[in-house]
Simulated scan of single mutants.
Amino acid sequence: MKETEAPPSLNDRIAQRVRELRAARGLSLDALATHCGVSRSMISLIERGESSPTAVLLEKLATGLGVSLASLFDEPAPVADPVARAADQLQWRDPHSGYLRRNVSPGGFSSPIQVVEVLFPPKARVAYETAARESVVHQQVWVLDGVIEITLGEEHHRLATGDCLAMVLDRPMSYYNPSRKTTRYAVVIATGLSFSAR
């Protein structure tokens, strides 16, 4: 009886994506460490799939690699199918805050837009320290159920069910769920697009 090979773990997929992105940019471990503020040893552990990195750590890596956080979860090779079936959509839980993110967009499909669904636990908080990026990243947060407080630089926004916040990821930001129930929201990310000022 032939044994079937187990699918790669999520940490393995992240490891492969970080390795590929770093190689594509011609960055050494030391160069990436300097660029994103993550230690060389931690990046090495992540690239070997031997670490369960937090969302904050992955955001630093993504910024240093010039990509969105969501793209670190993409399929290693582009897919031809433009449909992402619900059963195949990748889910990842942040080991620090416990928030659960699901990449809704087809992984690896060539598009400047990515859609992510997030379930954010009561009283949870995540603070991203990264600021301006090499390429402009536009993001919108649409609250599907519950409430979320988002701080972007000096701006503070409290969003309830149905509210949507548009932003450019160019300042440190944080998410906080002040309620006693899980908040569900969608994040739409657009990279590599230029928008004229109105």
Results as ranks from 00 to 15, higher is better:
residue 89 Q to S: 02
residue 79 V to H: 02
residue 90 L to W: 07
residue 42 M to C: 05
residue 43 I to E: 01
residue 73 F to P: 11
residue 58 L to T: 14
residue 59 E to A: 11
residue 57 L to M: 14
residue 70 A to E: 03
residue 67 V to L: 04
residue 65 L to G: 08
residue 41 S to K: 12
residue 86 A to R: 15
residue 93 R to D: 13
residue 77 A to I: 08
residue 70 A to T: 11
residue 96 H to S: 13
residue 99 Y to P: 01
residue 71 S to C: 07
residue 42 M to E: 13
residue 46 I to D: 09
residue 83 V to T: 12
residue 74 D to Q: 03
residue 74 D to R: 02
residue 78 P to M: 06
residue 66 G to A: 05
residue 91 Q to D: 09
residue 51 S to F: 10
residue 91 Q to F: 07
residue 51 S to M: 10
residue 55 A to N: 12
residue 78 P to Q: 10
residue 77 A to S: 10
residue 47 E to H: 09
residue 76 P to Q: 00
residue 77 A to R: 13
residue 72 L to C: 01
residue 85 R to I: 08
residue 67 V to G: 05
residue 91 Q to C: 11
residue 95 P to Y: 00
residue 64 G to S: 10
residue 72 L to H: 01
residue 54 T to G: 09
residue 68 S to I: 05
residue 72 L to V: 03
residue 64 G to K: 04
residue 87 A to V: 13
residue 88 D to R: 02
residue 93 R to P: 12
residue 89 Q to D: 05
residue 73 F to Q: 03
residue 71 S to F: 08
residue 54 T to P: 10
residue 72 L to A: 01
residue 42 M to I: 05
residue 47 E to I: 07
residue 99 Y to W: 03
residue 60 K to F: 04
residue 49 G to L: 10
residue 53 P to N: 12
residue 57 L to Q: 15
residue 64 G to V: 06
residue 96 H to M: 09
residue 44 S to V: 07
residue 62 A to L: 03
residue 78 P to T: 04
residue 71 S to W: 05
residue 86 A to F: 12
residue 59 E to D: 15
residue 94 D to I: 01
residue 50 E to S: 12
residue 89 Q to T: 12
residue 46 I to R: 11
residue 47 E to P: 12
residue 49 G to V: 10
residue 84 A to L: 04
residue 67 V to P: 04
residue 76 P to W: 00
residue 65 L to Y: 02
residue 44 S to L: 10
residue 80 A to I: 04
residue 54 T to S: 15
residue 52 S to Y: 04
residue 86 A to H: 14
residue 52 S to P: 11
residue 86 A to L: 11
residue 69 L to E: 01
residue 42 M to V: 05
residue 78 P to E: 14
residue 77 A to F: 09
residue 46 I to F: 04
residue 67 V to C: 09
residue 92 W to G: 01
residue 60 K to Q: 15
residue 41 S to T: 14
residue 42 M to N: 12
residue 65 L to N: 08
residue 81 D to S: 13
residue 49 G to Q: 14
residue 78 P to C: 04
residue 93 R to T: 15
residue 71 S to N: 06
residue 98 G to Q: 00
residue 52 S to M: 06
residue 64 G to I: 06
residue 88 D to Q: 04
residue 74 D to G: 03
residue 79 V to E: 03
residue 72 L to N: 00
residue 83 V to R: 13
residue 66 G to V: 03
residue 46 I to K: 11
residue 90 L to Q: 13
residue 71 S to Y: 09
residue 42 M to K: 07
residue 78 P to V: 04
residue 82 P to E: 11
residue 64 G to T: 08
